[in-house]
């Protein structure tokens, strides 16, 4: 039994088919990478998984067939996404952003404990908790987006391009944190253009190409694959 399984998963924008029959599974506790070039349909796939886009085909979350659920209903079932471009609320303060992540939770005491954990994980955010989030740097915004997503205590965390637009040192920091999250028993589906980073990080990976999965397997094996090397690792 897997946490997430897709089969014959299709998404289209108007008449354009962006995702054409993808099958993919994520087991409990795994870190899975989804790599591929620009426009391969990775972000579209993630958006459809969390209910922001309509899809056809099968989606099973936690062994429940999901069909026509709104995004907020999926969040209730343990999904959390850090969207591409971070998607923080720029006019809300840092602490308000973090509270938004816990929007559905009623357990005030544990929420408070989780908030202090997020601040412990990202001391920079603690320093800026009263500041309007739009004034944070790109890296700080990414930290905030991740911290906010964790506040929902997700079973499955979807990360869309967490390295995008960040300085290398910041990327390293962010991935260090993602690693921490993964060993604390949160299952992660990571979408990345930076294939090298993603493959080093995930146990298994899928390669997406113009809307379908072209390759899949253990990261260590994919890293040795000549096609992957040529197309994504630049070797």
């Amino acid at each position: 039994m897997s946490l997430l399984s897709l089969s014959d998963f299709r998404v289209s924008y108007g008449g354009i088919k962006a995702v054409k029959g993808v099958s993919l599974t994520v087991e409990y506790g795994e870190v899975i990478a989804l790599i591929g070039s620009n426009g391969a349909g990775k972000t579209t796939l993630l958006k459809a998984i969390c209910g922001l886009l309509k899809f056809e085909g099968n989606l099973k979350l936690d062994n429940n067939q999901i069909k026509n659920l709104r995004c907020d209903q999926l969040v209730k079932r343990g999904l959390s996404m850090v969207p591409e471009g971070r998607g923080i609320f720029g006019r809300l303060t840092v602490s308000e952003n973090i509270l938004m992540g816990a929007f559905l939770r009623k357990d005030k005491i544990t929420v408070r404990r989780d908030i202090s954990q997020v601040y412990e994980m990202f001391p920079r955010l603690a320093e800026r908790r009263g500041q309007v989030a739009g004034t944070l740097s790109g890296g700080e915004q990414q930290m905030l987006a991740i911290g906010r997503a964790l506040m929902g205590r997700p079973k499955l965390l979807l990360l869309d391009e967490p390295s995008m637009g960040l300085a290398p040192i910041m990327v390293e920091k962010i991935f260090e944190v993602i690693h921490q999250i993964s060993i604390s028993n949160v299952t992660i589906l990571l979408v990345e253009q930076n294939a090298k980073l993603a493959l080093e990080f995930a146990s298994r990976a899928y390669v997406m190409e113009s809307g379908s999965i072209s390759l899949q397997g253990r990261s260590s094996e994919l890293m040795k694959d000549s096609l992957v090397k040529q197309a994504y690792l630049g070797e």
Partner: peptide, 9 residues
């Protein structure tokens, strides 16, 4: 969109 990702209806 982002608000709905936080679980807001």
């Amino acid at each position: 969109q982002i608000a709905s990702l936080m679980g807001v209806n």
